[in-house]
Design a protein around this nucleic acid. Structure first.
Length: 290
DNA sequence: AGTTGTCAAGCTAGT
DNA sequence: ACTAGCTTGACAACT
């Protein structure tokens, strides 16, 4: 089992999510920011290896505006060496990588233009991983999308859109259960038709489920991951008590985390800790003994 | 130097 | 009607 955290490291004094305003777009700005982001990503991965954190989610802002029509610059060529170098480091150290496009990616939107933009954004994420020459087990995780008051129709739209995607995208996409619309059961249903691997988010499952225990959930989820896809990826987080539903905790609760691991002990998976203090809690989690 | 309004993009439920 | 929350604040103009 590998343990990781998403996107940001607060210990090393740099961020791999530097950006600029669309109004200030220029090739020069883009090159500068991407270079800074790649340098910081390399540093972050080194920190992670040093601390036995071998699962990491690369932030979507690595190449600002990459999928926007304003960006005609060939960043893949320009940064080819840096991207390959990072990819080599990832492979040498056996690091598992994921990416998670943001909320604006809605493959089942009713508006065609939103779907087109979403596909472009997903493609950009795949381009990053392809440029690093990572295997198919590096995934791009998305949610099924909007409901629009008619879930069955909306699931159908997702399946249809997915069916039309290029192989390059299909081989990296995974769907994750969300905390208010699409449950694990919905994701499994989509998997039945599309074969898309299902990323299990334990906290979302606590918010929205059909009575499955973690163990039962994992048994089903595991079946959706083929050998090429690698071991299942799991997202783990906790509800901040007294806050509105969906708010994550500042720190990990070791007891709760341990309980989760105990219940799912029989399964192998990589686990992403979506906890606000990031690498701090992740490092604590690496020291947990069952 | 520090503070604060704003930033490409969507959807949902809580307030 | 409005906004917090989502994988994540960072930028830039202002004081």
């Amino acid at each position: 089992m590998k343990i990781g955290y998403p996107c940001i490291n607060n210990s090393i004094g740099c961020t791999a999510n530097k950006t600029f305003r669309l109004a200030n777009y220029s090739e020069e700005n883009l090159i500068k920011k991407v270079q800074e982001n790649l340098d910081c990503l390399q540093k972050t991965l080194q920190f992670n290896v040093d601390n036995d954190l071998l699962f990491f989610r690369i932030g979507s802002g690595l190449v600002p505006f990459a999928s926007h029509s304003i960006c005609t610059f060939n960043w893949r060529d320009y940064f080819s060496n840096d991207l390959k170098k990072i990819g080599s480091y990832i492979k040498e150290n056996n690091i598992r990588i994921s990416m998670h496009p943001d909320q604006f990616v809605v493959l089942n939107a009713k508006n065609k233009e939103i779907v087109e933009r979403s596909i472009k954004e997903v493609e950009y994420h795949c381009d990053v991983l392809d440029s690093m020459e990572l295997k198919e087990d590096a995934k791009v995780q998305i949610h099924i999308g909007g409901v629009y008051g008619e879930k069955e129709e909306s699931i159908k739209r997702f399946v249809n859109t997915y069916g039309g995607l290029s192989l390059k995208i299909k081989k990296r996409l995974a769907v994750e259960n969300d905390h208010l619309s699409y449950s694990l059961k919905d994701c499994l249903k989509v998997n039945k038709i599309t074969k898309i691997p299902v990323i299990f988010d334990s906290y979302h499952h606590e918010c929205l489920n059909n009575g499955e225990s973690f163990q039962e959930a994992m048994r089903e989820v595991k079946k959706t991951w083929s050998k090429k896809d690698g071991v299942p990826m799991i997202d783990y987080s906790e509800q901040q008590k007294g806050k509105r539903k969906g708010v994550h905790t500042e720190k990990i609760t070791i007891k709760k985390f341990k309980d989760f691991l105990k219940e799912t002990e029989q399964f192998d998976f990589d686990i992403m800790l979506e906890i606000k203090d990031k690498e701090k809690s992740a490092i604590k989690a690496t020291k947990v003994k069952l």
